[in-house]
Design a protein around this nucleic acid. Sequence first.
DNA 1: AGTATGACGGTTT
DNA 2: AAAACCGCCATAC
Length: 111
Amino acid sequence: MAKKKKEDSLFERIRRIVKQIPPGKVAYYSQVGAYCGGCSGRVVGFAMASLNAEEAKQVPWQRVINIKGRISPHGFGGLLQRELLEQEGIEFRPDGSIDFEKYLWDGPNTE
DNA sequence: AGTATGACGGTTT
DNA sequence: AAAACCGCCATAC
């Protein structure tokens, strides 16, 4: 195995992590970033934003939220994402936040 | 090569 | 408590 071309930039690596999030669970950007090698949550969000329609069907980007347990204030899919999460079995609080104690993803290997 | 940005996060005002 | 600001780090132009 010679020098392998590292096409798996953080970008793809992040996708791989997100794909490992089980249904009914959520993870925040910084968390995924930590699993992808310690990149900042911003890079994770950037990777999610770069997902194509096809990849969006492969990557549960909807399960990735901010550390506040809420949908990002930037307002991308907003309502849509919340709706998808509810279909996953995740319950939202009256203030629109998710109970991390109950839905936070344990990790890529500790499911 | 440099500048701008972005689905974040934490600190400061 | 809410808003503004800076810092992080990779992609886009």
